[in-house]
Design a protein around this nucleic acid. Structure first.
Lengths: 358, 358
DNA sequence: GTGAAAGCGCTAACAT
DNA sequence: ATGTTAGCGCTTTCAC
């Protein structure tokens, strides 16, 4: 039985009474350890005790204090790290950030489901303040997105801190940590094939920056689809972008300036695909009549584009949810799967059409 | 001098050594209380000690543990509560949520500046799980946005928990808690006046839902501008919407079906204004040639609209930042200002023009 | 100006 | 199956 003083019934600071585990134990006439056992669903509690304790918990509206739990064991905190530069530039561009919204909501809902809480923070490439964040917050797990999920400096710091992490859409070139992804190569191949099915033969490709694992994978998918169809790919059909709208404009200019020019362009993300549509309009090339355009991601730009973009939809919310799930499960059992592949979906919209017969 | 065992130098759980306040004290040859004093910038520490301690802190890369601090005193956590229904529907609509992104980033950056951490959670109108969240997380402050910031159930729960809160764009009808806002009435008046300056006389208005404080305030601004210009407002010029695109379509239909019809429409948010533009297109009414349209908020819909919407820009990031600032300051000094008004800005885009001369 | 000791509310290791 | 006792890493009295 508790002999410890309790704050219940008197004011704690500015706030009113808040029940603690001692109050629950006292009310149920048991020890705090039994209460703790029930709270954590540990075995070795008689059903009778369990019910008495649950009663007391409900009666006192008791909820375990996250800080206390964190100090003693698990923090019940999951940290999502997003790239600072990327996020800030998205915000400045005023184009919204569906990826971020979906990611966060997916992660948040899964956290809530398990009594965890989500903290979102920015990381710069050097991961300057990461060590501080980790050692002061001690999250039970960290969710990483591109490009941070492939940043060795960041992964090293996490390993050193002993903090489990889940990487969303990681590069295929190293298998560290938990990983959640779609089959980007197959998706890229499939969307390229859909262009080929529409009769296109000269299909241009705009690649992403080297430091994104996705860049190489998507390009590989494109190449494979072309070769599977027995189509040659001229070197000048591939232009290097960096996933920004601006780089898309440049690449589009390079691609559309050729003679004969491509009848279709696969930009490896939607922002660049949007740029292709803009550039085409500027050059008087009708989309999709004279040029089919496809992107990747199903970002906002795909929907607001005129015509709306045919693209590949990544289930970001679900991926984030899965990442959190893996992290939470990982804390409870070490034998959990360390990689999960989720399904993507081709979204056919107005930016693609049969090749014109000219 | 510390006699307490320390984890420094040995593995703590899965993780490597992490310095604690005891390690710092030991290294500096002082008591943990002195370290604590320096960390919290308390007075009564000699400069000599201070420097020695700061040295040790740097050498050990020490960062105070948030959970421990939370247990003993302040949690260093700020909670942002966003309306569940609103947020989920935004996500489902796949139109992005600039408001949410801006809000969160503004709050997050201010938190980081002060060594605080931000947690974002959803609240349903009944505020079901709010009590649980508050008592388990014990945040030092809560940021509230519309419509939650005017939800008495929520405010009551917060008051009962003794948790300080800052309301962003609160209703003017009750002055509870800290408040951050723009002068919505004046903004509404000004944007209405800008329409009048363009020669418009028959100006329709689409109101927002009753449970938003902003609705009434914006309507008041509209009415005041009209009356200040000596213009009569016919009852049928005011249509009630609910801030959704769909309701905007209905209101637009009602307004544009009149004879003579309005030459300009002020929709009290951008989503409804976007709907007006869509409806006008459907009816063959050219914007801005035959109809000027203005919105409010400068949301994504304002930018992606064709033509882009003239609207009022709320500095959401700054408002969130200010809200966090007030909350953090409130913890340190009770005499802080409890309300802050920030500047708005009229954004003139392509959806407004001189009234046509017919 | 400085420090020793007592919690904060939990979980974990060890009895019983 | 249940309880006792230490901490976890800080802040806060209250001594000196």
């Amino acid at each position: 039985m508790s002999r410890r003083p309790t704050s219940f019934g008197k004011l704690a600071g500015a706030g009113p009474p808040v029940a603690t585990i001692y109050d629950v134990a006292a009310r149920a006439g048991v020890s705090i350890k039994s209460v703790s056992r029930v709270l954590n669903k540990e075995p070795h509690v008689s059903e009778k005790l369990r019910l008495k304790i649950l009663d007391a918990v409900a009666a006192l509206d008791f909820h375990p204090n996250v800080s206390a739990r964190g100090l003693a064991g698990k923090s019940r905190l999951v940290l999502v790290l997003v790239d600072a530069e990327l996020t800030l530039s998205h915000l400045r561009s005023e184009h919204g950030n569906l990826y971020f919204d979906r990611l966060q909501l997916g992660a948040m809902l899964k956290c809530r489901e398990h009594g965890y809480h989500l903290i979102v923070e920015l990381v710069a490439p050097g991961a300057d303040k990461l060590g501080e964040t980790l050692s002061s917050l001690r999250p039970d797990g960290v969710v990483l997105t591109p490009p941070s999920c492939d940043d060795v400096t960041i992964l090293d710091k996490l390993d050193r801190a002993g903090t489990p992490y889940a990487r969303i859409s990681p590069s295929r070139f190293f298998e560290r940590g938990l990983r959640v992804f779609i089959d980007e190569a197959q998706a890229a191949q499939e969307i390229t094939a859909s262009l080929i099915d529409l009769g296109h033969r000269r299909i241009g490709f705009i690649a992403g920056p080297k430091d994104y694992g996705a860049s190489q994978t998507r390009q590989a998918g494109y190449l494979q689809a072309m070769s599977a169809a027995g189509l040659e790919v001229k070197p000048e059909w591939i232009s290097l972008g960096d996933f920004t709208f601006e780089s898309g404009i440049d690449s589009a200019a390079a691609l559309l300036g050729q003679t004969p020019r491509p009848t279709a362009i696969f930009a490896s993300n939607d922002d660049m695909a949007l740029a292709v549509v803009h550039k085409a309009a500027e050059l008087g090339i009708k989309v999709p009549d004279a040029l089919s355009v496809v992107g990747f991601d199903d970002a906002l730009s795909a929907r607001f584009c005129l015509p709306p973009l045919t693209t590949v939809r990544q289930p970001i919310s679900e991926m984030a949810s899965k990442a959190v799930e893996l992290l939470i499960a990982g804390g409870e059992a070490k034998d959990c799967t360390d990689a999960a592949q989720l399904p993507y979906r081709l979204v056919i919209r107005g930016s693609t059409a049969m090749v014109s017969s000219d």
